[in-house]
Design a protein around this nucleic acid. Structure first.
Length: 571
RNA sequence: GGGCCUGUAGCUCAAUUGGUUAGAGCAGAGCGCUCAUAACGCUUUGGUUGGGGGUUCGAGUCCCUCCGGGCCUACCA
């Protein structure tokens, strides 16, 4: 038994996430968390909403709400959707929590004391109408290079030229359209990541088996150009963790907050503290997960995220923790993902293109989505969602291979023996072969799950289901019943137990369906099989059950076409 | 511009890291079964591994080059 700390990249607060966001972090993290728990490990699975930053302020303003109540409301919306998808967080926190404020300020102070914070005076664009400084990309204007009239202050999307906001012709605020912009000097704190470059480089080099996607992005940032650059960790905003606080090793930072990317990863730790608070536990309860001097020495820490998050998790956040000089637990493995595309293009939150978490649950139960998304997780390259692929995959794998197996076994038993596990008869060579085949495949399944090889795990799970159909076809209890009912009874007893075994093994992927199978089998033994033969004797003769309702209804062509149309346009 | 990833059967993906005859699922074809959600099982068609060149006893895998797709490039997160 090990102790495993799992964090999923924090979903940003400004709206409901699409399936691409889900499959890139929270869903695979949940798969791993469920598996680790099933194997008897002690798991702490943490997620939270990422609530600070300019987009949150703007989204709140658009919604006509104060930013704090907007975030509180959206947090509840996202929490409800997470529950709807069966995401088994031990705690779903908020980066705006008091715990995160305190910890962010604490770590910043430590970094300041360690000489890793530098004050830099720089020029920023201020909008009088908006009453705020504008990040580069919130300034629009005409591109000096190609004449595109909606170029952004960081880059022109038309000609892809990198820009400085002052390069733009006729610059205006992207928020309000205001043109009363002014370049002002402002002072900010920079994290001296460059001072930690060699430390980080050596740390990355010491990791083995990380996805290429993870290490290549980290190395690029470490070695490109002049190497790892210092990074501004404060912003001129109202909503966030205040930079000026009692005990801060700097002055004159009133009215500024920490940059969202500084405080967001810290929320992993703070959310664990929020968990302890919610459980009525003291600080040692969370510290034993995060402080190597307080019990976290034997913790294995795994992070899940989309590739866009990798630089912050491989460099900035470790720089924060290492630079603090305190014994914080660093990540042991970073599982990163490419993007999921939608039917020939990208999912787009701003364009409302694709399927969003709320819409997905309105259309179908979460297990359908979990299965498809996980079995097509973009591990090696970007992958693509199409409704046709989704329909075929779900109908074949879930309805035909697994659902129908459950149906044929339980219904056959009901009609010949009644709704109780039949006794009598003995098993023979074919059953021994089944046990051997299951054992071999289970080992592979376990190995893939341990290694977080998600698509391979899904393939192997499906292959385990197929073994059931193969066995049933060869054993043919419907034939045996005519000449030797005891033989048929033994075969069906095994088959009913096989279904229970599948419910247990499938639970990380399709928890709701597994729970329904177990409920109808009147079984609460979820223990992961150590020995397959033993696991196939859990349901003893005479044990009552009921025939489950259809586990997975097939997706009709009509439904598919309707959804294709409904989700192609704008939300 | 620079960097990284990627291109394998009609479609979605494998291939123990250079090692026998490149494998699965879906789709297609044929046969079987009749317990079951017209489901299941068996057999089978289908590949010049994007093109070209090179290294090697041996290349999907390594090198060069060309072509296509994607991502990142540090003030959105």
């Amino acid at each position: 038994m090990a102790r495993i700390l799992i964090t999923s990249a924090l979903p940003y607060i400004n709206g409901i996430k699409h399936l691409g966001n889900l499959v890139g972090s929270q869903l695979p993290a949940d798969l791993y968390a469920r598996y680790a728990r099933a194997r008897g490990h002690e798991v702490m699975f943490i997620c939270a909403t990422d609530e600070h930053g300019t987009p949150a302020e703007i989204a709140a303003a658009r919604a006509g709400q104060p930013v704090d109540s907007y975030c509180a409301e959206m947090h509840e919306v996202q929490a409800a959707l997470a529950r709807g998808f069966g995401l088994s967080f031990d705690h779903f926190g908020r980066s705006s929590s008091a715990r995160n404020h305190a910890l962010t300020q604490h770590l910043a102070a430590r970094l300041g004391d360690a000489g890793l914070i530098e004050e830099v005076a720089e020029k920023q664009v201020y909008s009088h109408t908006d009453g705020r400084f504008l990040p580069d990309r919130y300034i629009e204007g005409t591109c000096p290079n190609c004449g595109h009239t909606r170029a952004r202050g960081d880059q022109c999307e038309e000609c892809t030229k990198q820009l400085d906001p002052t390069d733009l012709i006729d610059p205006r605020s992207a928020i309000s359209g205001a043109t009363d912009l002014e370049v002002r000097e402002t002072r900010h704190l920079y994290l001296r990541q460059s001072a930690l470059r060699n430390t980080l480089d050596a740390w990355i080099d010491s990791q083995t088996g990380w996805p290429v996607l993870t290490t290549s992005i980290a190395r690029k940032w470490l070695h490109d150009g002049n190497g790892l650059q210092d990074r501004g960790i404060t912003r001129d905003l109202d909503w966030g963790v205040p930079v000026q606080f009692e005990g801060a090793p700097w002055t004159g930072m009133e009215g500024k907050v920490f940059y969202v990317w500084f405080d967001a990863p810290i929320e992993y730790i703070a959310a664990t503290a929020e968990w302890a608070d919610a459980q009525g536990l003291d600080d040692s309860a969370w510290q034993r997960w995060w402080r190597t001097d307080m019990g976290a020495g034997d913790v294995r820490y795994v992070q899940f995220m989309g590739k866009d998050n990798v630089p912050f998790h491989t460099l900035s956040f470790p720089a924060t923790l290492i630079g603090s000089g305190e014994p914080w637990k660093l990540v042991d493995y970073i599982k990163s993902f490419n993007y999921l595309n939608y039917d020939g293009g990208q999912f787009s939150t701003s364009l409302g293109r694709g399927v969003f978490m709320d819409q997905a649950l309105e259309a179908l139960p979460s297990d359908y989505w979990r299965w498809w998304l996980l079995s097509h997780a973009p591990e090696n390259s970007d992958s693509e969602f199409t409704w046709e692929n989704f329909q075929v995959s779900v109908n074949k794998d879930l309805a035909d291979v697994l659902g129908n197996l459950v149906s044929r076994v339980t219904k056959f038993c009901r009609s010949k023996f009644g709704e109780a596990v039949p006794g009598g008869g003995t098993t023979g060579a074919r059953e021994a072969q089944l046990v051997a085949d299951l054992t071999a495949r289970l080992r592979v399944y376990d190995a893939h799950m341990e290694a977080m090889e998600i698509r391979k795990s899904a393939n192997e799970l499906r292959a385990l289901w197929v073994l059931g159909n193969e066995y049933l076809q060869e054993a043919a209890p419907w034939s045996a019943f005519k000449t030797d009912p005891e033989q048929a009874a033994a075969q069906i007893r095994l088959s009913l137990n096989l279904i229970r075994l599948y419910a247990v093994l499938s639970q990380p992927f399709i928890p709701d369906a597994s729970a329904r199978i177990m409920a109808d089998l009147r079984c609460k033994d979820w223990s992961w099989p150590e020995d397959v033969a033993t696991a196939l004797e859990v349901l003893a003769p005479g044990h009552d059950f009921i025939v489950p309702e259809v586990l997975f209804a097939k997706i009709s062509d009509e439904s598919r076409v309707e959804w294709e149309t409904r989700f192609s346009g704008t939300r």
